[in-house]
């Protein structure tokens, strides 16, 4: 279980362009932080840098557990979950096949996958191929994999865009539960999250 994420003096460049520099952010267990900024300010890049998918130009990203600092690679392989712009679902496979694989791959069990499907009102859809789901349903399926796995840091990139009001509320409840259990959330959003969260300005 992660206790803190420490981002120090982080700078990210894409090509020749410096997106931002000197970013400091500490996220502790039970906290949520929301990244705000104009389009192209580097919110997605920051999330990908924390996930280790993108190399920052300067600065460091460190992870701590209750026992002390741990290797970033270990933290990422065991404690970090991410939902990017895309849902990461194969259109030719059934919703259950995808949810089951993604849950097992990130350390969950079949039972936790079923429970998460229940939370997101998915059981009726599980036998359908992903191509038959609407954008909102696909997003719920992608969110269910977060709830189904035991990972403590969630990186969310515009997680709620395709969701309707009722589903946003339901997802808010899931996020609140995650935080109450000692999880952390780092999200990039345009609409406010339905949970208390700190705002972090990215770019100028």
């Amino acid at each position: 279980m992660l206790r803190a994420v420490l981002i120090q003096e982080l700078a990210i460049s894409r090509g020749e362009r410096r997106l931002f520099s000197g970013l400091n952010l500490t996220l502790r267990a039970g906290e949520a932080a929301v990244l705000v900024g104009r389009n192209g300010a580097g919110k997605t890049s920051l999330l990908r840098a924390v996930a280790g998918l993108l190399r920052p130009a300067e600065g460091s990203i460190a992870f701590e557990t209750a026992e002390g600092p741990i290797e970033a690679d270990t933290a990422r392989a065991e404690q970090l979950h991410m939902l990017g712009h895309q849902d990461g679902l194969k259109s030719s496979r059934t919703a259950w096949e995808e949810l089951r694989f993604q849950t097992l791959w990130t350390g969950g069990t079949e039972e936790s996958a079923r429970a998460a499907a229940q939370r997101f009102d998915l059981p009726r859809l599980l036998d359908l191929e992903v191509r038959r789901l609407s954008a909102g349903q696909r997003r719920r399926l992608a969110l269910a994999r977060l709830a189904a796995s035991p990972r403590s840091l969630w990186l969310l990139d515009e997680p709620m865009a395709p969701l309707d009001a009722a589903q946003r509320e339901a997802f808010g409840a899931v996020m609140a539960e995650h935080l109450a259990a000692g999880g952390m959330i780092l999200a990039s959003v345009h609409d406010p999250l339905p949970i208390p969260a700190r705002s972090v300005e990215i770019g100028q």
Binding site: A77, Q86, L89, K90, T106
Partner: peptide, 14 residues
């Protein structure tokens, strides 16, 4: 293309 590679990169196996 569909974002699965991100998820595979964050898995328990390298």
């Amino acid at each position: 293309e569909d974002g699965t590679l991100d998820l595979l990169a964050l898995g328990p196996a390298p």
